[in-house]
Simulated assay, not measured.
Amino acid sequence: MPICIALLRGINVSGQKIIKMDQLSAIFESLGFQNVQTYIQSGNVVFLAVEEESEVRVHKIESRLQEELGYEVTVVLRTMEELKEVVERNPYDLPSLTPDEKVYVSFLSGEPAQEAKDRLLSYKNEIDDYRLRTREVYILCRKGYGKSLFSNNFLEKKLGLAATTRNWATVKKLVAMAESLRSKG
């Protein structure tokens, strides 16, 4: 059984789309997923998945969330191996960053078309740096994510794909949780 990480977009933000993590776990378990674990309130779920195509899995999760919660929730899914690769491919030298500089990763629902990639290149600026790698955008925020141009909405508009962002500590924690789940199996 593959170990997967579901990244839910826009839940429990500013009092919108509220869901308790025990309810979220129960929804995932109702889909037949096993060893379901959540991490913080922003919608991170690590679980053992049934064997099926990723697109089918995402559709099942999104449909059940809509059914149970009464609103749409976009889900971006990665396997443990894909998430480990995200960590390994980090283009920034973390030890050299200043205390004010933080790394974030925006996870995309697919790979953007070349035209969209080229369009995004025109938005380079001096406040933030970013690197697009297949289905992720690594963002180096020099003045905080709240002041970054590269919000989920901005990336979705420019790339034509769903996006959800996590800070570097959360990405690393999700990898550790997935590896822990693998060691139990």
Rank of each mutant, 00 (worst) to 15 (best):
I40Q: 10
S42A: 13
G43M: 08
G43A: 12
G43P: 03
F47W: 07
F47V: 00
L48V: 12
A49V: 03
S54I: 09
S54A: 15
R57V: 06
V58W: 04
I61F: 10
I61T: 05
E62G: 07
E62L: 09
E62A: 13
S63P: 03
V73E: 04
T74E: 14
V75D: 01
L77S: 06
L77F: 14
T79G: 10
M80G: 03
L83P: 01
E88R: 14
R89K: 14
R89M: 13
S96Q: 12
T98N: 06
T98A: 15
D100K: 14
E101W: 10
V105N: 02
S106I: 02
S106W: 06
F107W: 07
L108A: 03
S109W: 07
G110N: 11
E111P: 01
P112R: 01
P112Q: 08
L120T: 03
L120Q: 04
L121M: 14
K124P: 00
K124H: 13
I127F: 07
I127W: 05
Y130M: 08
R131M: 08
R131P: 00
L132G: 09
L132N: 09
T134I: 08
E136V: 03
E136W: 06
E136L: 04
Y138V: 02
I139M: 09
I139V: 15
L140A: 08
C141L: 03
N152C: 10
N153H: 12
K157P: 00
L159V: 02
A162W: 07
T164N: 06
T165Q: 06
T165N: 03
A169Y: 08
A169H: 11
T170F: 11
V171M: 09
K172E: 15
L174C: 06
A176M: 13
E179H: 08
E179R: 06
L181Q: 09
S183L: 12
